[in-house]
Design a protein around this nucleic acid. Structure first.
Length: 255
DNA sequence: CGGCATGTTTCGCC
DNA sequence: AGGCGAAACATGCC
């Protein structure tokens, strides 16, 4: 999915439906409780909110979370803010529609081949950490509460309870930009490294946000697959598995 | 055809 | 008890 930056695009698109009344909801039963969602019919969409990678339609008296997992795409009024996801399918099939909502003046659907998308009524977001787009000082403060943790830095960045919205690519970009090896224990960072990392989060998030997405960084998808070289110093890029995900980093300048 | 993919939750094991 | 790593989930693509 969509990391936080992409979720922001989805939230913006969904906002087109604010002020509309929900006319119908058609949902894949494996992705949601269709009986619950049926209670939303006839009610008004009064807002949209996002925290981390999570997006929710604020409905008169309820909230409906749209969770996209890795391959869920949002289409609002027939237009997809992200036409094709990295690592997603190259085509779109009708049977991959997991949620189809029609409103008084528009429509919204979520298309997800992998069927990991989830639609939850009145979701509990209390476990989510600070949003990735928060103020840099607040991000640093939030990170500081975990300085004793022995997990790898990469795993910590991916932990949604610490910072909500960072995904695999953003985390790699942040570590690349702060010259830190993703395998390092978070607790082993020096004060200088900790500060560098904290600052880099906001830099990376705003820069890639301006460029259009998590896939627009130095370690863009083209470099993630093949044996590639560091765009900064030409050293070979390394691939390791951390926290169940592939981490890409430069063997030369990330220490 | 085997392996891998912008992710979260669950299950064991320290 | 709490924290960590690996597996599970489902399916398309290279």
């Amino acid at each position: 999915m969509p990391e936080g930056l992409e979720a922001e695009l989805y939230a913006g698109a969904a906002a087109q439906l604010v002020g509309h009344q929900i006319i119908s909801i058609d949902v894949d039963d494996r992705c949601a409780d269709s009986m619950q969602l049926a209670t939303l019919i006839g009610r008004d969409i009064i807002g949209v909110k996002r925290h981390g990678k999570r997006v929710a339609l604020v409905i008169d008296g309820a909230q409906l979370e749209l969770y996209f997992a890795m391959t869920g795409r949002l289409i609002v009024n027939g237009v997809a803010p992200i036409p094709a996801l990295e690592y997603g399918p190259s085509t779109e099939r009708k049977e991959w529609d997991r949620l189809v909502m029609t409103t008084s003046k528009g429509s919204l659907r979520v298309n997800d081949p992998r069927r990991w998308a989830r639609f939850t009524l009145d979701p509990d977001w209390s476990m989510l950490g600070i949003d990735l787009m928060a103020d840099a000082c607040d991000l640093q403060k939030a990170l500081g509460e975990h300085r004793h943790r022995t997990v790898s830095v990469k795993a910590l960045l991916l932990d949604q309870r610490v910072i909500a919205g960072l995904g695999n690519m953003l985390a790699d970009e942040i570590l690349f930009g702060s010259d830190i090896d993703p395998r390092r224990q978070f607790s082993s960072l020096t004060d200088d490294e900790f500060e560098r990392l904290s600052q880099q989060i906001s830099l990376t998030v705003s820069e890639l946000g301006a460029r259009g997405g998590s896939h627009k960084g130095a370690l863009h998808p083209g470099l993630r697959t093949a044996r590639a070289q560091c765009p900064l110093d030409g050293a070979p890029l390394q691939r390791v598995t951390l926290a169940g995900r592939t981490a890409i980093f430069c063997s030369q300048h990330q220490r």
